[in-house]
Computed example of a mutant assay.
Amino acid sequence: MGRKMEWAGKANHLGGLPRKTVIMAVGAFAKAVAVLLNSTSVQNADSLLNLVRSRPPGVPLITVSNHMSTLDDPVMWGFKGFPTCNADLQRWVLAAEDICFKNTVLSYFFRLGKCIPITRGGGIYQEHMTEALELLNSGEWLHTFPQGKVYQEDEPIGRLKWGTASLIARAPVTPIVLPIIHHGFEKVMPEKYLFGRRPPIPLWNKNIKIIVGEPIEFNISELKQTAIFKSRNSSASSNEGWPPFGPLDEAAQRCLYIDISERIRCVMEKLRVSVMKSKV
């Protein structure tokens, strides 16, 4: 548990130089994989670029995407015209603790790369979800993979984890939520390539397709009232021991997070179908 290194994730750590160095190096790698080694096309890139560069002050941004490989982040930000090497504009991202924070060196590296450790199966009220909320409260950009793990099959988007929905609902200022769907990373970094393992380096000459959707609007106060009404008329029991969230008990919170997650899932699925239709 001593590898969380919140201090290394601070912008002023050693004057910000280590963070800038890591972001620039990783950004250059992402550009090389996305632009030089492979062919990447992005539809509606301006929606993302505008929100990253010039959204209203204090308004947080949450981008959500499908998860097709261990390279999705950072390579999905490596497309031409994106400020991949700018440490101030670069996203924060929820990252699997068991992969990215296995030892001190990895923990330090990923902290500098603006990653927040998340324990899979640890629930939506685990320690570092509070850290993510604090970043949203500061108007930061956070990227999440609400599927929770890599899916490389061309299958419909299934039920999403509730962590992203809980962040959207609990953020003091409701974030702008921007959906992104991509295809092709499963060919750049296939899970089962050599003897059932990933290749040692990214593959090349592949086509990567990214579609940026339009922001999803959420009227959180209205959704909360609906959730309270639904929970009172539901026989489902809740026993996770969640703390109250304003007037919402655990049952109402479940209804709220299910509703938000399903809205995101539906939008992501429509984008996924659109990507598959336009696939070369």
Rank of each mutant, 00 (worst) to 15 (best):
P57I: 12
N86Q: 08
E134W: 01
I23E: 01
I208R: 03
G213I: 00
G213W: 02
I211K: 06
G148N: 06
V52H: 07
E186Q: 12
R120D: 06
L71T: 10
K192L: 00
E240W: 00
R198V: 04
G122T: 11
S238V: 02
V59M: 12
T130K: 15
A171T: 07
T84R: 00
T63G: 03
E153M: 07
I264Y: 00
P172G: 07
R55Q: 14
F29D: 03
G58D: 12
T104V: 08
G123S: 03
G196Y: 13
T164A: 15
R265A: 09
W141Q: 08
H183I: 12
S47E: 15
P179A: 05
E240Y: 02
M76Q: 08
K192A: 12
L37H: 01
S274W: 01
V267M: 04
P202W: 02
L17F: 00
T119L: 07
T130N: 14
I260Q: 05
L136I: 08
R19F: 05
K31F: 14
Y125H: 15
I228A: 06
P74R: 04
L256C: 08
N66C: 05
P156H: 09
T144E: 00
L61F: 09
F245R: 03
R265S: 00
V93Q: 13
R111S: 15
V26L: 01
C266Q: 11
P175T: 01
L271R: 11
A96D: 08
D249L: 09
E6F: 05
I176N: 07
G246M: 06
K277A: 03
Q152Y: 02
P60K: 02
F29I: 02
K31N: 15
G16M: 03
I23S: 03
T164D: 14
P172K: 06
E240Q: 10
L94W: 12
C266L: 11
K31G: 06
L51D: 11
P60C: 02
L194Q: 06
M129Y: 05
P199D: 03
V75Q: 00
G81L: 07
P202H: 03
T40C: 13
S107R: 07
Y257A: 08
D154L: 15
T63A: 06
N239D: 11
